[in-house]
Simulated assay, not measured.
Amino acid sequence: MTNAPSLDTWIDAFIELHAEHETSEPNSDHPLWWAIERTIFILEPVDRETMWQFVIEVLARRPPPVRPRMPGGRTA
């Protein structure tokens, strides 16, 4: 058994890392890079239910920006 971080710790690290790099890509030297690895590269198994909880909670805590719709369905 591994010593995996809690779901809240993982979510917080993922959001913090992306907040710090709004206009640039984070690199693998960043101390919170493990949150990217856990999410994208899945070096350790994460069950489907936990991954869904992660996705839903990230979106709830940091929703994507809303783009206004223009006539014809185009976004601004």
Score class of each variant (00 low, 15 high):
T2M: 14
N3V: 14
A4S: 10
A4Y: 05
A4K: 13
P5A: 02
S6Y: 01
S6V: 02
S6C: 06
L7F: 01
L7S: 06
L7D: 07
T9M: 08
T9P: 03
T9H: 07
W10R: 00
I11E: 00
I11Q: 00
I11S: 00
I11D: 00
I11W: 00
I11M: 01
D12T: 10
D12L: 04
A13L: 02
F14L: 07
F14P: 03
I15L: 04
E16N: 10
E16V: 08
L17T: 00
L17M: 04
L17I: 05
L17D: 02
H18Y: 08
H18I: 05
A19V: 10
A19W: 07
E22Q: 11
E22N: 07
E22V: 12
T23C: 09
S24N: 09
P26C: 04
P26E: 00
P26Q: 04
P26M: 04
P26I: 02
P26H: 00
N27P: 06
N27F: 07
N27S: 15
S28W: 08
S28Y: 10
S28E: 13
S28N: 14
D29A: 10
H30M: 04
P31R: 04
P31F: 02
P31D: 03
L32K: 04
L32M: 07
L32E: 03
W34D: 01
W34I: 06
A35G: 02
A35E: 01
I36K: 01
I36W: 02
I36R: 04
I36D: 02
R38S: 09
T39M: 10
T39L: 11
T39Y: 09
T39S: 15
I40W: 11
I40M: 14
I40S: 15
F41R: 09
F41M: 11
I42M: 12
I42D: 06
I42G: 09
L43T: 11
L43G: 12
E44V: 08
P45L: 04
V46Q: 01
V46D: 01
D47G: 04
D47H: 05
D47V: 05
R48I: 15
R48M: 12
R48N: 11
E49V: 10
E49I: 11
T50Y: 03
M51V: 09
M51K: 07
W52G: 12
Q53K: 11
Q53L: 11
F54Y: 03
V55K: 08
V55N: 09
E57C: 05
V58P: 00
V58D: 01
V58R: 00
R61V: 05
R62K: 15
P63D: 01
P63Y: 05
P63K: 01
P63V: 01
P64Q: 06
P64H: 05
P64S: 06
P65K: 07
P65C: 08
P65S: 09
P65W: 04
V66P: 05
V66E: 15
R67C: 14
R67K: 15
R67I: 14
P68H: 09
P68A: 14
P68L: 11
R69Q: 14
M70W: 06
P71G: 09
P71A: 13
G72D: 03
G73Y: 02
G73A: 07
G73K: 06
R74G: 15
R74K: 14
T75G: 14
T75R: 15
T75I: 13
A76D: 12
A76G: 11
A76R: 11
